[in-house]
């Protein structure tokens, strides 16, 4: 029982992990992208459109090939989340508008776009495409604990973990990461040192958005087996909280996301199902934990565990 609980938690953690990794990358450049929940929805919308487009293109789900289906859906997901990131970047970086307002508006937009697209496409055959995504490593019919915990997931879970590790390494161990962190901490300094603040902000926000968008794809195609779910944004908010929880470290987010999804799923494994209030209360725990972490980090006030210093601020070189 605990094994299945852990296994489903690890599986669900991918949606948090995609969101948190993308958001961390974005925030490291000083952009507080509160549009991440919306961008995850837009990724979901892209994947829905991509899947139905592919099915109609090959003329029915019976002709679908795994490679083409996966490629088309991922590509459309990336394009849609990239568009979301572009909207956000253009408004906040080029036009230097308020990041919070832009992000919140983008979230509303993304949620709307997902229900708009999701309600209008032909969903027959989605379960077949979902099968391609959920296909795991070959494991025995009666898997032991190792196979259950490590080999039983679809490709997207592994991609999420690999991406988190790559992003963590890039941020900590490369010049690109050094420059990126400088842009987020003190853009005027980075600029004076010859780092293009605009390019780094755009780059980090766009790549971050694309990573976050994969979260929407994962949730619809893997977690929900192709059923369109319109509440992806609630996972997006938890992903934003997870970024704070892991003090801007994607490698910690791997464990953090598992913890978050354990808390998220806790209500379906423990407690009395006749008390719905109890389940709702348990679902609040992740937010509560994040609040506690915020309080703790601000008390400890270690400089390294603070948010990037210029998070949420716009930068203009000739400002006086």
């Amino acid at each position: 029982m605990f094994l299945t609980y852990l296994q489903s938690s690890i599986r669900l953690s991918a949606v948090f992990l995609f969101g948190a990794t993308g958001e961390t990358l974005t925030e490291k450049s000083g952009n507080l992208n509160l549009g991440t929940p919306g961008i995850m929805c837009m990724g979901g919308a892209g994947c829905v459109l991509g899947a139905s487009f592919y099915i109609s293109m090959v003329g029915g789900v019976q002709n679908a090939s795994p490679f083409g289906a996966i490629l088309t859906t991922i590509l459309m997901t990336l394009i849609f989340s990239l568009l979301g990131g572009l909207i956000y970047s253009f408004i906040t970086i080029t036009l230097r508008c308020n990041q919070n307002v832009t992000g919140l508006a983008l979230t509303t937009f993304g949620v709307g776009l997902l229900s708009f697209c999701g309600g209008r496409v032909d969903k027959t055959g989605f379960s077949t495409i979902s099968d391609y995504f959920t296909r795991s490593f070959p494991i025995s019919a009666d898997p032991n604990w190792f196979e259950t915990l490590f080999l039983s997931y679809g490709m997207l879970v592994y991609i999420a973990i690999i991406l988190a590790i790559i992003v963590a390494i890039v941020i900590r161990k490369t010049r690109v990461g050094l420059n990126l962190r400088a842009v987020g901490e003190n853009p005027a300094t980075a600029d004076a040192a010859g780092v293009s603040v605009t390019n780094y902000k755009y780059g980090a926000t766009l790549i971050g958005s694309m990573i976050a968008g994969l979260g929407g794809l994962f949730y619809i195609m893997d977690q929900r087996y192709g059923n369109i779910e319109y509440t992806i944004d609630s996972f997006g908010w938890l992903a934003v909280a997870l970024v704070i929880f892991t003090v801007w470290r994607p490698n910690w987010a791997i464990l953090g996301s598992i913890l978050f999804s354990m808390l998220y799923l806790l209500s379906s494994y423990v407690g009395d199902s006749s008390f719905p209030a109890q389940a709702a209360a348990i679902k609040m725990v992740p937010y509560l934990v994040t609040t506690v972490v915020l309080v703790v980090t601000s008390i400890v006030s270690r400089r390294e565990s603070q948010p990037p210093a210029s998070l949420g601020l716009t930068y203009f070189r000739e400002e006086r």
Partner: peptide, 24 residues
Amino acid sequence: GMVHQHFKLVDLFTGIDNIILGEE
């Protein structure tokens, strides 16, 4: 190269990381 009056340094970095910042 210019040393600005209000130093342009990232507080969180070491001296070395500040110096190699932006190097091409």
